[in-house]
Amino acid sequence: MPLHPQHWLRPMPGGLYCEPGGFFIDPSRPVDRAIVTHGHGDHARAGHGRVAATTETLAIMAARYGEGFARETQALAYGERISLGDVTLMLEPAGHILGSAQVVLEHDGCRAVISGDYKRRYDPTCPPFTPVKCDVFVTEATFGLPVFRHPPDKNEIAKVLHARELFPDRSVLIGVYALGKCQRVIALLRRAGYDRPIYLHGALQALTQLYESRGVALGPTASVAGMVPAQLKSEIVLCPPSAIGEVWSRRMGDPVPAVASGWMRIRARARQARAELPLIISDHCDWDELLQTVRDVDAPEVWVTHGREEALIHAIQQTGRKARALSLIGYEDEE
């Protein structure tokens, strides 16, 4: 009789713990052995003993925290199987950001997949999510309400290009998360045929260079430092969302403030972010994609980690599957 994952995979105060393997996944506090799904700060923290992750995730962590972010690191290729104690472990693409991975665990005849953060739609900066059939699927629920249905990315990029035509005397200043969103927005602009240099706030440059060094072609980018408003007319500038409407943004003159995030679907959130141009571009699944993924991996049981769990659990239960909240703490809604 195979041993159900509930007996060997448990939520602990520090994160999800796999007992027969002796490791945590995305632990929120320092542990001896960690598997890290991707480089976002709430999933990848410094100070662990041993960290296993994709090469790209390890590089991102080194760029953010310095080379000594863990005592020992182990780089895993997608699809490469390793054994940790009694557990076989493998990483599969999660389609969230560069290097993001799902953790596939097999133990005693059962398979659990911990998806980390993930998305299903096309992203030129990372390989697509691969559905893996499993007994237990662990999912996030950042956009776990049926009001979240992201429009096609190309509509949103078209809004940016249209704003340039409408306001030729202004720059378009897009607030983006420094890791993932920034590079994806650049790549989407390139796909839409935009070939002018894209100007970057200082906080976005290192990770953008890292993406390029990993073979993600993003076209010409340049620092916005030292530029004056007259030089930035009708140019596109990217900055962290927190810089919109702050003292720093005055250097752009009178920019069209835009914010690229799944939260821009909600008008009150867009107004709060002071976006004149809210761009609904997300690195997480929307509602339909969350449910589609549950069907694709065909798991009889789903555990929900963070986000708006109750609605997602309710909807999954309606399809005849088991679903429950793990109530892991330490993960944020940031995107």
């Binding site: 309400l145 049926p146 909600i266 008008r267 609605a311």
Partner: peptide, 23 residues
Amino acid sequence: IDPELFHWSYDYVGDLAETIALI
């Protein structure tokens, strides 16, 4: 629409027309 999902959504969005438009 499942009424439970509707109510959670309306609670979250806060505006009826917007909730209907999105859901």
